[in-house]
């Protein structure tokens, strides 16, 4: 499908790039990306992917927009408070780029629905704020062989890496199983800087574009750690673990698991994302 004039104009600044060009733009227009969590990380990802012309963007979030979200979740606005986050996100993306197809899932990702949703996409972005979802996403993406951009933030710190199944380590190579409930603070308890979410989410968006285009060097086997206070980026090499319970030689995780919610605050009340 040749690009229309309006598309050429809209995307001209990236078409100009030698390793994108018209072909790359077409790839993006045909691509389908799922963002899990329309929160602090999901916001920049959603906006940048929509602006870059990723053809289909799915967004999963069960919660409604709350006033305290707006400090870091730049997808949402004061006048969308109370609205389902996925709706608010859809509006924002449409306003930015009406060409993008936004598919909304106002559900909690569980072992029941994860496969069905993830299957429709080429790549997945983890913008979740809790361990059960992070493990679930890691596992389902591994099973369905979908690349996954993992990201997390806490206070002034953030980290990200990219999993491409069987080509590099997965999340469980790093952390074989979730920490016991209560051992790790969630962001609700720890607080977070909006700009840090912006940094990490933006980097995730960049990773997604690279993987979709097949260019550059994704964060495969490399964990990038950001310290917003000392203003340092550190890179830690993470080898693939042959004993990984998921992607190792003798896997023990062979189906999706719903880990227990351990934040305690989430059920019944809307929990913030990222």
């Amino acid at each position: 499908m040749p690009l229309r004039d309006e598309q050429i104009e809209r995307y001209s600044r990236q078409i100009i790039l030698p390793n994108i060009g018209g072909k790359g733009q077409e790839k993006l227009l045909e691509a389908r990306v799922l963002i899990v969590g329309a929160g602090g990380l999901g916001s920049p990802v959603a906006l940048y992917l929509a602006s870059a012309g990723v053809g289909t963007i799915g967004i999963v979030d069960f919660d409604n927009v709350e006033l305290n979200n707006l400090q870091r979740q730049v997808l949402h606005r004061t006048d969308t408070v109370g609205m389902p986050k996925v709706k608010s996100a859809q509006e924002a993306m449409r306003a930015l780029n009406p060409e993008v197809r936004v598919v909304t899932y106002q559900v909690r990702l569980t072992s029941e629905n994860a496969e069905e949703i993830v299957r429709e996409y080429d790549m997945v972005v983890d913008g979740s704020d809790n361990f059960p979802t992070k493990y679930l996403l890691n596992d389902v993406c591994y099973f369905l062989k979908k690349p996954l951009s993992h990201g997390a933030i806490l206070g002034f710190d953030g980290q990200l890496f990219t999993m491409i199944p069987d080509q590099g380590p997965c999340y469980r190579c790093l952390f074989p199983s979730p920490p016991p409930p209560g051992a790790v603070p969630t962001c609700q308890e720890a607080g977070v800087i909006g700009a840090v979410a912006g940094v990490i989410g933006t980097l995730q968006a960049n990773e997604v574009l690279k993987v979709l285009l097949g260019i550059g060097r994704p964060l495969l086997g490399r964990l990038l750690i950001f310290d917003g206070l000392s203003m340092e980026f550190r890179e830690v090499g993470i080898p693939r673990d042959p004993n990984c319970p998921l992607c190792g030689e003798y896997p023990t995780v062979t189906e999706l698991i719903d880990y227990e919610e351990f934040c305690g605050l989430r059920r019944g009340r809307s929990g913030p994302h990222g």
Partner: peptide, 9 residues
């Protein structure tokens, strides 16, 4: 034809 080089570590 500049193509991206995907480079795994």
């Amino acid at each position: 034809e500049v193509k991206g080089d995907q480079n795994a570590t």
